[in-house]
């Protein structure tokens, strides 16, 4: 199996894992793994090492909303310009160009519903290219980026099996 793919699969699930452990899992030398990761970082394939947090469990945590936006494009600029502009707000967690009824989908995070609602009304809806917005507040997150936000299920196995 390709070493870079193997390393990516390992650290996508466990970014805290050490170099020598990756080396032992893949049958490589520490230097080979370090070199491989350096290349992946430098080429921008690895963007960042992140943590999945269940903010629902934290008092004073965050409110999330998904905002769908319709855009009217100007003659000389594409979606890129407006997407870049929206991306700069720290409240905005993700920005995606999507197919279907709307053009762009955002995830926005704030301390309260009111804060998020005002942010959308004042900062996003007022942008000249934005024709309309639809705000959907997230009530509960069950799975985030491939991670179930509850106890994982275990196989119900016997302890010794031939």
């Amino acid at each position: 199996m390709d070493l870079a793919l193997n390393v990516l699969e390992i650290i996508e699930n466990d970014p805290k894992i050490g170099i020598s452990e990756i080396a032992s899992l893949t049958g490589s030398l520490d230097e080979e793994i370090q070199d491989c990761i350096n290349k992946l970082e430098m080429s921008g394939i690895i963007r960042k090492y992140k943590t999945v947090i269940d903010w629902d469990k934290v008092s004073g945590g965050f409110i999330y909303a998904i905002i769908e936006i319709k855009i009217s494009l100007e003659r000389e600029t594409g979606y890129r310009v407006i997407a870049d502009r929206i991306s700069k707000f720290q409240e905005v967690r993700s920005v995606r160009l999507i197919s279907g009824d709307h053009d762009v989908s955002l995830t926005v995070r704030g301390k309260s519903m009111k804060e998020v609602a005002f942010f959308v009304a004042e900062k996003i809806a007022t942008l000249p290219q934005v024709r309309s917005t639809a705000t959907h507040f997230v009530l509960k997150t069950y799975k985030e980026d491939g991670v179930l936000l509850r106890e994982p299920e275990h196989a119900h196995r016997l302890s010794i099996v031939p």
Binding site: E153, A155, L158, S159, I160, V161, P162
Partner: peptide, 23 residues
């Protein structure tokens, strides 16, 4: 016999299982 023994020690770590740990 091992099965019976291991069953008395529910907290034992088992490397004795001949089936996947994946569901």
């Amino acid at each position: 016999r091992f099965f019976d023994l291991a069953n008395q020690l529910p907290d034992a770590i088992s490397l004795g299982v001949g089936e996947p740990d994946f569901v």
